[in-house]
């Protein structure tokens, strides 16, 4: 059989194409948005665990980053605003064998869902929480969020944000999380390793990922996406085991990134099984 030389060869397949719903790609994230990088890093980490894909489930709330659950070709749930963690806790209690990943944004996890976050961390629910922190409410038009830095401009604070932001690693540590890390999308390899470690870690794992929002944060603060990446390159300090209390986001003095906490603690489903299902071993 002869082949037609003019006919184009089949387009090459991306190595992660088996984990994404390719019919939905290109995704809705803006040019220069870092959520896609975090998402692909998360997929690489899932792949690197070498566990079967039906052992994973992804839960997300509302927001730009929460669209991730719609693009992954696994069992995934797109829940109501702020309720990703309660939903994930329910999955974990019903099916303790599953690896539950919560992929959501800062507004969803820490503003409306803040209480759920601290209580899941207190109980040490065995799940991996990936928080894409773009320092603003991106999807609704760039309003001031709980993580917007002091004096940063937003739609609702045109003269600059008068308040100080949350220090997310400190919040997670104080609430009782057993794995806490922070990376930016520029340190992609470290981020993938951290997500892989967090998936394998038994206990509440929290990873904050700084990511540019060029349209709704960068534009109002005179930052092009490449400038934000340069900021991540020049004004971050990698310091493993650093005290989370020093990890506030202030690019003037340098943002501390790295793995802050990695300890072993008994998890919620272990304690529950021990108390209420003593005969489950057989």
């Amino acid at each position: 059989m002869t082949t037609n030389p003019k006919k184009l060869a089949k387009p090459p397949e991306h190595p992660l194409d088996d984990l994404i719903r390719t019919e939905r790609i290109p995704h809705i994230w803006c040019p220069g948005c870092g959520i896609g990088t975090v998402f692909s890093s998360c997929l690489s980490a899932i792949k690197a665990t070498e566990l079967p894909y039906n052992q994973f489930t992804m839960v997300s709330g509302i927001g730009c980053s929460a669209r991730g659950a719609g693009y992954i070709k696994l069992d995934s749930f797109h829940t109501t605003h702020g309720r990703a963690i309660p939903f994930a806790s329910g999955i974990k209690m019903a099916r303790p064998d599953l690896k539950v990943i919560v992929f959501s944004g800062d507004g969803d996890l820490f503003a409306i869902g803040g209480n759920h976050f601290i209580h899941a961390a207190r109980r040490n629910m065995d799940m991996t929480v990936i928080c894409v922190n773009n320092l603003t409410y991106g999807m609704t038009g760039g309003q001031v969020a709980a993580t917007t830095p002091n004096m940063a401009k937003s739609t609702t604070t045109p003269l600059g944000n008068p308040d100080s932001p949350f220090n997310l690693p400190l919040l997670a540590y104080a609430a009782g999380a057993s794995y806490v890390a922070r990376w930016t999308i520029l340190q992609t390899r470290d981020l993938t390793t951290a997500i892989n470690e967090a998936i394998n870690h038994k206990g509440f794992s929290f990873i904050e990922v700084l990511s540019p929002c060029p349209i709704n944060y960068g534009r109002r603060n005179k930052e092009k996406p490449i400038d934000t990446m340069k900021l991540y390159q020049d004004h971050t300090i990698i310091k493993h085991g650093a005290n989370p209390a020093e990890a506030d986001i202030d690019f003037g003095k340098g943002v501390v990134i790295g793995k802050f906490i990695h300890i072993d603690k008994s998890t919620c489903d272990d304690r529950y099984t021990e108390m209420h299902r003593p005969c489950i071993d057989d």
Partner: peptide, 13 residues
């Protein structure tokens, strides 16, 4: 592989 892992769009490898 750095272009592959930094690309937010799954467009290069």
């Amino acid at each position: 592989h750095y272009c592959e892992i930094i690309c937010p769009e799954f467009a290069i490898f």
